[in-house]
Design a protein around this nucleic acid. Sequence first.
DNA 1: TCTCACTGGGAAAAGCTTTACCCTTGGGGG
DNA 2: CCCCCAAGGGTAAAGCTTTTCCCAGTGAGA
Lengths: 347, 347
Amino acid sequence: MRRPVSDEARTTIHDVAARAGVSIATVSKALNGNGRMMAETRRRVLEAAQALNFRPNALARGLHSKRSFAVGLLTDDVYGRFALPVMAGVSEGLIDHGVSVFLCTVEDNHDHAQSHLDAMLEKQVDGIIVTGKRVDKLLPVDVQGLPVPVVHVMSDGPADQVSFRPDEAQGAALAVRHLIAGGRRRIAHVTGPERFRVARERASTWQQTLEEAGLPAPQPGPMFGRWSEAWGHEAVATLWSLPLPHPDALFCGNDQIARGVIDSLRERGVNVPADVAVVGFDNWEIVANETRPPLSSVDMNLREMGRQAGLTLLAMINGEEVAPGIKALPCTLRVRQSSGGPAARAD
Amino acid sequence: MRRPVSDEARTTIHDVAARAGVSIATVSKALNGNGRMMAETRRRVLEAAQALNFRPNALARGLHSKRSFAVGLLTDDVYGRFALPVMAGVSEGLIDHGVSVFLCTVEDNHDHAQSHLDAMLEKQVDGIIVTGKRVDKLLPVDVQGLPVPVVHVMSDGPADQVSFRPDEAQGAALAVRHLIAGGRRRIAHVTGPERFRVARERASTWQQTLEEAGLPAPQPGPMFGRWSEAWGHEAVATLWSLPLPHPDALFCGNDQIARGVIDSLRERGVNVPADVAVVGFDNWEIVANETRPPLSSVDMNLREMGRQAGLTLLAMINGEEVAPGIKALPCTLRVRQSSGGPAARAD
DNA sequence: TCTCACTGGGAAAAGCTTTACCCTTGGGGG
DNA sequence: CCCCCAAGGGTAAAGCTTTTCCCAGTGAGA
């Protein structure tokens, strides 16, 4: 395959100037809407640019303006479960402003992360977005003291930087209140490892929301385990073997646990949602839609979060003041049948 | 939050030259290992560069060399199931060569895709990688006649461009032969919609591999349906209601179908793998590890495919001749318990 | 001692765009 | 009829790096 790039030089502003019969300055001014010139001249330039399919070289433009119109996105979520919606949101929010996004997946390798970061800084990125799969685990690279603004998404950055994350408490409360509103009174909570901050937050909100509703303190307390289906099975086995009245609802720390819970309940002959309602967290469509019945779940609106993070970074790049600290974005609840929602439309 | 970028100018080659007491030309030569100079001079320059934390401006460098050391990655897989491993592989393969990757998620929107493409071309990307979630569905934008090389991954590009994809036939054969080697004789196939080329390919390979092994023509033929768990359930219901001997193995078109199949079998009291072995496709860890028992599955090695695609693009950028056409990369089989593999280690 | 050759390092241009500043030309007013 | 001003458009520099010459100085050989 021939390498087309070397065959012909890309068209430059000089080509356009020659074709329009003006100087390169006039072309630049016509294209950027600056300067003064006769409407006719402007038209001729635009026409020539169009005819030659001229694209201004962003490298040269960036060299002059000290803006590259590119930002870097650093993530350790190679699996993409959380990172990709965020990325899509960032990219979507920025493309309208002509800003492109460098993607860097770094896993847990410090050297790898550092070389990605160096490469981006060399390419003069205007800003950097850092996103992780765990809120309370930072990327293996230092992003302080960088010459460009930094925004964190899904993981809390240093206190003097800007971070976006879902409002875990609000999301959890949404789920619990929904269950209470559905008439449930004995709402258990099965979630991931206690060392995850999100697990602790969701659990304490669950407890608090029940209290606020005047419901008795839940027995047993929050069930910390793993983020897996298997743990959902185990948790149901435990709950159903305790000498306590069975729960009439389960709020699960993520959708995989919820799936395990629903499967276990069905296998025990417990009807969902008639006997027990189930609500998950993450609204991972591919899981939530395939449980039987489909799973109600809290959606963290990752894409929107990415969009806002991108636009915020852009504002910072443009010199606007943005207060540092954590911005918690509201979650929404997607109600499906597992908590009494209407049956899904046939597909 | 202050905007640090405007506070101090970034250090340039002039700063290094001043500190080392040499000219900028010497600095450049020292840093790039070109030219002749005393070892002492070179050392002094490197030391100065280090002390000032000098990073050559890639914009200026690119302007001169006509290489931006960036490539664009265009994908329509917002969900990331397939795209993210590919991206990670591309990024991993290229970062060692100082090449960064622009990520563009375009969904089905032509205008969106076009503006991403334009933005990347303006930024002088050295090449473009196109990846889709469906092999036989192209992105909603024309990537022919571009001034830079193009490589397709996971979806077949035009015949005169380079494409990478998994060797579906080899992967499917791997699965079927594995089942045959395990003593299975009545191997059914449940897969996605027939309009998907991969479904047709896997199905015909399944048929052919059985024939080659001297096994009777399978009854019924390939069962085309949807890529969902629900279809796995339906397919098992159908198979077990037919007036035919039940299969002793099922080869499924993807892991979600396989999961539905396994769940259905368990609910019918059919033992997996003792009575029926099951093999899936995609090796989607998060699904394959959570089925009961864990699911054997064909792995398409997406990450490695991304890596190779990235390196191939790099070769093309460097002017090497690469034969156009489709390069099919081998799949591997990950054997778990569903087809008789050893029990997983306890986690 | 003079000249040649080689070594170490510098000056300058190229690469493309933007923009501040300047020049030219034409028209209107005095 | 001359002068001045404004409109229109051009010139050149800046932004940063790389690379191609080219120059100066030194050592050796004649």
